[in-house]
Design a binder for these strands. Structure first.
Length: 645
RNA sequence: GCCGGCGUAGCUCAGUCGGUAGAGCAACGGUUUCGUAAACCGUAGGUCGGGGGUUCGAUUCCCUUCGCCGGCUCCA
């Protein structure tokens, strides 16, 4: 009997009869592995455990611990979902059903919408199928025959997929009566799926094309253990609790008003003060780092946007132009043209480069109504924008300074986790990009080597560059692990030439400067939203709208309470007085709900001793402190922008 | 924009299988003067998102429109 040599990850190898299945190999190692294994990697290819090994190959078993494990498991969970749906609803036609970062989904074409009740029914059907422990059987079909089969079953979406994607002989998986065109691999049987839950149903389109079939997408998630599933569900609940839209209302930070229009933000006094603090800090930093502050108009002649090219490539994101005295004006969707006009207002010498022009620039972009979301996605927002005009040889230093600035900003606001992405061009499509190959080459190298030099780990994103230049994006990771894209540092090969920007070099001749766009917080609105969710509205003292709240126990201490308030305010501490005719407990409760970091209770004892009884937002009663001691202590906490105390 | 869901008092929500609505909190008035997460009593508050239709009668059914929520797509 011919045999095959199978090599294990530890380097050892053994002989097995040719045609041995991966599962049999696993069994030969131990029953525990055989029970745990979900799939295998043979010769670097992911395969089912039923896969027969016909030639010498290295093998590796995919267990729940392997990075691919969860993905395969969830993919099988998606098949389980489709098996249940097609069983319960013969009029539902499956589309595609992949695993996602947080679970899986499956798309179906069906006239009638799925309801919440349907989800419950589907879920119990899925449990039945799990209990029945049906095998996930891998089958092979010649393309035409398979297509015919799907056609006879009425599965027109599957037919289309086979037509487009299938190899001459393609694989399919059968789970009970459900047959799916699928590359695999899958876990051996449905009984292996332990913990799953259907989450929601939402609309989607066949192949993401809104002119194609409207589909219904059922989302679910699956984990290896019930505990992990519960943790995940708890995390969703936690995220709901942190929702900035809810907190924004409760804490009176901001609002969006029907009368004004969707996606337009009203900053209320409490939010306004937070914004002021953020902006003040930011402007100080900008000046320290050699930026100049500018302001540019919100509407400018339309022809400027024609020169910049926005009327071509950005038109669908712009508000309509308005007529003014035989001319047309455009509400600005970006700040760059304004800054360019300032740059061009006079001749520039190489001696003054780099010119770093910063503006908290408010821009308006038309976003399709369905995409708006609280502060995160709006139609009017303020960018902490800057444009750096520099000589090509200054690029690397400028990029490094931007990235360092970005990290400084993130850490100042209490974010210590982030992910960096480097988006470069798709070399296969040079026609998609402005600028020459050489320019791109130089810019990409500059970005990459800057990150390398800074020892910043980054994810290369080939093909993700915008048409006018490569970019570095920084995504911060918030308190509950969600990434948010805020910072972007982008090269621009387009605008300097469109606006014929120049500087006079040491050689006395005109040169074209390189332009870098960069935003660190991105948009103040979105950043505020992220900040609210990161802190669940309980901002560090330096950002809190109200830093201290004085609570007299009764009317008897009114005069002393006002005295304390004046002293704190005199020290620049944002202080309020709550002398409402409510019990102390009630006022403390309100202050806790408003997330005021320090509550200062004053009764006769405190008045007597010229002090306050400090209550901390997070840890409660902290006891007596003399006012003369408390003020400098809090002042220092604020000045150092402490996140914890 | 598209698919699905939703829109009842300032907020959170109940309710009417078609006979024009109710609770808690908030607000306001009073009593109470209180020691670390909700004192008590009372008062007022809604053309049931807007418009149109069906009907003797619409908050309820139908159409339309605006907005919100979850997605698709895109992005700061």
């Amino acid at each position: 009997m011919p045999s095959v040599q199978i090599t294990f990850p530890d380097g050892t190898s053994r002989e097995f009869p040719q045609g041995v299945t991966a599962l049999e190999v696993a069994k030969s190692i131990g029953p525990r592995l055989a029970a745990e294994a979900l799939a295998a990697k043979v010769d670097g290819r992911l395969v089912d455990l039923t896969h027969r090994i016909e030639s010498d190959a290295p093998i590796q078993f995919i267990t729940p611990a392997a990075p691919e494990g969860l993905e395969i498991y969830r993919h099988s969970a998606a098949h389980l979902l489709a098996a249940a749906v097609t069983d319960l609803f013969p009029d539902a036609h499956p589309g595609v059903g992949p695993p996602t970062d947080t679970g899986f989904f499956y798309d179906f074409y069906r006239e009638k919408p799925f309801t919440e009740d349907d989800l419950a029914k589907i879920e119990s059907k899925m449990r039945e199928i799990v209990k029945a422990d049906l095998p996930n059987e891998r089958l092979y079909f010649p393309k035409e025959e398979g297509k015919k089969l799907f056609d006879q079953m009425g599965e027109f979406l599957k037919c289309e997929l086979v037509e487009e994607k299938a190899e001459p002989v393609f694989s399919a998986y059968r789970t009970g009566k459900f047959l799916d065109f699928c590359r695999g691999p899958h876990i051996p049987s449905t009984g292996r799926i332990k913990a799953f839950k259907l989450l929601s149903v939402a609309g989607a389109y066949w192949k993401g094309d809104e002119h194609s079939y409207p589909l219904q997408r059922i989302y679910g998630t699956a984990f290896f253990t019930a505990r992990e599933l519960d943790e995940f569900l708890a995390k969703i609940e936690e995220a709901k609790k942190r929702d900035h839209r809810r907190l924004g209302k409760e804490l009176e930070l901001f609002s969006i008003q029907d009368d004004a229009g969707p996606g337009l933000i009203f900053w209320h006094p409490k939010g306004g003060i937070v914004r002021k603090v953020i902006e003040d800090w930011l402007r100080d930093e900008l000046l320290k780092r050699g930026y100049e502050l500018v302001f540019t108009p919100h509407v400018m002649r339309l022809h400027l946007w024609e020169t910049s090219g926005h009327t071509n490539f950005y038109r669908e994101n712009m508000f309509g132009a308005m007529d003014v005295e035989n001319d047309r004006y455009q509400l600005k969707p970006m700040n760059c043209p304004g800054h360019i006009l300032i740059y061009k207002s006079r001749r520039r010498s190489y001696r003054e480069l780099p010119v770093r022009m910063a503006e908290l620039g408010t821009v308006y972009r038309y976003e399709r109504s369905g995409v708006l979301h609280g502060l995160m996605r709006v139609r009017g927002f303020t960018q902490d924008d800057a444009h750096i005009f520099c000589a090509p040889e200054q690029l690397e230093d400028e990029v490094q300074a931007c990235v360092e600035f970005a990290f400084a900003v993130l850490s100042a606001f209490g974010f210590d986790r982030y992910e960096v992405e480097l988006s470069t061009r798709d070399p296969a499509h040079p026609e998609h990009y402005a600028g020459t190959i050489e320019e791109w080459e130089r810019a990409e190298v500059a970005l990459r080597s800057t990150l390398d030099r800074m020892k910043v780990p980054f994810k290369p994103m080939p093909g993700e560059a915008v048409f006018y230049g490569p970019k570095i994006d920084v995504k911060l990771v918030d308190a509950i692990g969600r990434p948010w894209q805020l910072t972007t540092v982008q090269f621009d090969f387009n605008l300097p030439s469109r606006f014929e920007l120049e500087y006079v070099g040491a050689d006395g001749r005109p040169h074209t400067p390189v332009m870098v766009h960069r935003a660190l917080l991105g948009s103040i609105e979105r950043f505020f939203g992220v900040l609210i969710e990161h802190y669940t509205g309980a901002f560090p003292a330096w950002l809190s709208p109200v830093q201290a709240l004085v609570l007299p126990i009764s009317e008897k201490q009114a005069a002393y309470a006002r005295e304390v308030v004046e002293k704190l305010r005199g020290a620049g501490i944002r202080t309020e007085l709550d002398d409402r005719n409510e019990k102390l407990n009630a006022r403390i409760r309100d202050a806790q709900l408003q997330k005021v970091p320090f509550m200062l209770v004053v009764g006769d004892r405190e008045a007597q001793a010229q002090g306050v009884a400090v209550r901390r937002r997070d840890t409660g009663d902290a006891g007596f402190r003399p006012v003369a001691e408390f003020i400098p202590w809090l002042r220092q906490l604020i000045d150092t922008r402490a996140v914890k105390w």
